[in-house]
Design a binder for these strands. Structure first.
Lengths: 357, 357
DNA sequence: CTGAAAGCGCTTACAG
DNA sequence: CTGAAAGCGCTTACAG
């Protein structure tokens, strides 16, 4: 079947208006019988305007449907109420949820949000992204869960208001000039690993998400190996890495071959989905023969069969916190939100169980 | 387990620069020994500039690191190279993919993209969204897959350059003033229904996504019932509706009770996920006892067990087409893309089979 | 409390 | 080919 779609309209292209049809501050002034400066005062809620005058102006504003030009305002004050988010991805669960949190917080605060996805991590890609963000004029938010994000975060020019959602704090303190927010993935992964160990598994294998620093390991992988070491269990070699179910499936195929593998902790739920599928194809049942655990608690995790045990992360909250980190720079006197703690919660469902006898 | 997260930085809030630190057109002019108008010509690639002059200016631009202020430019020309997308959701597969397509196309064309999610469909919500979009200054793109989207699409003021990705063309021709793009969901759903019927099912049940028009049916539901009618099969009553797995699960629980139900076509893959899960819980195996089919072919569909039969829709392409529909209004002389056809493809996997004997 | 002036950084006719 | 002037729509001191 191949059903084709459609495009309609644009028959008579609406004339691209050279000038905004809008009514300006001067039109309002004329209508209200005052100078346009007074109009400016009124719309900026200056206290020094006679009540009577204010009302006349407001009435004119209403009647004429005046809307202040955001760009003229921005040019005059030298700042725009905009944040632009730089991210390597918009559809993976963690990224999409963080973005959602940012957008929510921004909207609630009256900020517009721009979005730009990163093409890669090459110097020219990074330069283009930084330039775009700078051009936009407002603050910058980077979702730095991967190398591309990390690269632009580091390349941001000094003085540019910015904040980031990161995988983990940099190993080396970087002066802490700019706000960064994160969830303690590492501790969460260690906890998940301990949970699996407590179930009776001799060790736990790990399919990782790529690290955001070249040559490093993801904090989740770090927490996993650390927990293993602390428990005196052997730390298996890497079992593949990636972001999506296809990557998980590939890793799972390898893992399925080794009967010694009885538990695998995945760097995210999509990876886990692929691993579970591979196990199924190899005739190894989950959790009877192998336990598989995810990370993130994406919306579908609870509905899989077996329902996926995982670690729930509140990315939307992380996104909101990130926005507020930026807001303190953009508007130092804005009421700063009391940030709720960013928590990670172990969710036990059906995909994990004691190892086969 | 409750691992808390962190916020760091912002110790010494970088002084919010009242004025852009940047170098202006006049700085460049001074450095190059020309008037600033000439600089303007050079950066706008005006043909009437002496080669020698151009080079001097370009050198100064380079040396000083000049970047033209987007907002000043916008104010002067009365237009910004920005599109803002209005959408009711950013995380559901269809929406997120459409958004991705839009962003890609916009980035490739040098347009910035703003995003604003719709709070609801009440008059005040609609007004706020429209106002925001208007304020932004550029063109508007609405993802009108739901009622909120449809409502703002209809509320857009005349003269505002806009385009939409819709579920289906309006029943009534609306003059076709503005470009709209869509995939023929209805035909695709009919095809899927016929496929199920051809497998031997006496009829097919349907768990729908909400219609984008009040009191109407989604095109997918329309295609389904039409195919049933044409085949002379009975058209079952509604089996619930919604967007996500939770909704699908609820509908699936009802459906599972009725032994006459042997095939269910879902309005999207998340719904199907929930239905499959409900069937599993009720002890009805898929596809031996019931066939269930999704819609969209989201990334996880292929990795479920059983792998989900579905209809693949190219939302990213739809998003790109939508952007180009807007572009023809924003920049009438831009090279208009040859739009590849928007196709829907039936994907047969493991969740569908002939009915039990 | 309110007006007149200057400026934000750029573009667009208009002269020359 | 290049400069001087005016303007985009608003804000910000400065007078009064």
């Amino acid at each position: 079947m191949d059903v084709t779609g459609h495009t309609q309209g644009s028959g008579a292209p609406t004339q691209p208006p050279r000038r905004r049809a809008g009514v300006s501050i001067r039109d309002v002034a004329r209508a209200a019988g005052v100078s346009y400066q007074t109009v400016s005062r009124v719309i900026n809620e200056s206290p020094s305007v006679a009540p009577h005058t204010r009302e006349r102006v407001l009435a004119a504003v209403e009647r004429l449907g005046f809307r202040r030009s955001a760009t003229a305002h921005a040019l005059a004050v030298g700042q725009v109420r905009t944040v632009t988010v730089l991210t390597g991805n918009t559809t993976l669960y963690g990224y999409a949820s963080t973005l959602r949190g940012i957008e929510q917080a921004a909207r609630a605060t009256g900020y517009a949000v721009g979005i730009r996805v990163l093409e890669g991590e090459s110097p020219s890609d990074v330069r283009a992204a930084v330039q775009h963000a700078t051009d936009a004029g407002g603050g910058v938010l980077v979702i730095a869960y991967d190398r591309a994000g990390q690269a632009v975060w580091e390349a941001l020019p000094e003085g540019l208001p910015a904040a980031a959602a990161v995988e983990a704090p940099a190993e080396v303190a970087d002066g802490g000039a700019r706000p960064r927010v994160w969830i303690d993935d590492r501790a969460a992964a260690a906890e998940a690993t301990r949970y699996l160990l407590a179930l009776g598994h001799r060790t736990v294998h790990h399919v990782a998400i790529p690290a955001s620093v070249r040559g490093g390991s993801s904090p989740r992988a770090l927490g996993w190996s650390q927990a293993l070491r602390e428990a005196g269990a052997v730390v298996p070699g890497p079992a593949g890495e990636g972001w999506d179910a296809t990557d998980g499936h590939r890793a799972g195929r390898e893992l399925a071959r080794d009967p010694a593998v009885t538990a695998v902790l995945c760097g995210n739920d999509d990876l886990a989905l692929g691993v579970v599928r591979a196990m199924h194809e190899a005739g190894r049942s989950v959790p009877a023969s192998v336990s598989v655990m995810g990370f993130d608690d994406a919306p579908h995790a609870a509905f899989l069969t077996p329902a996926l045990s995982t670690v729930r992360l509140d990315f939307a909250q992380l996104g909101r916190a990130c926005f507020h980190g930026l807001l303190t720079q953009l508007a130092p006197d804005a009421p700063s939100e009391e940030a709720p703690p960013l928590t990670a919660t172990l969710v036990r469902r059906e995909s994990t169980a004691p190892p086969p006898p």
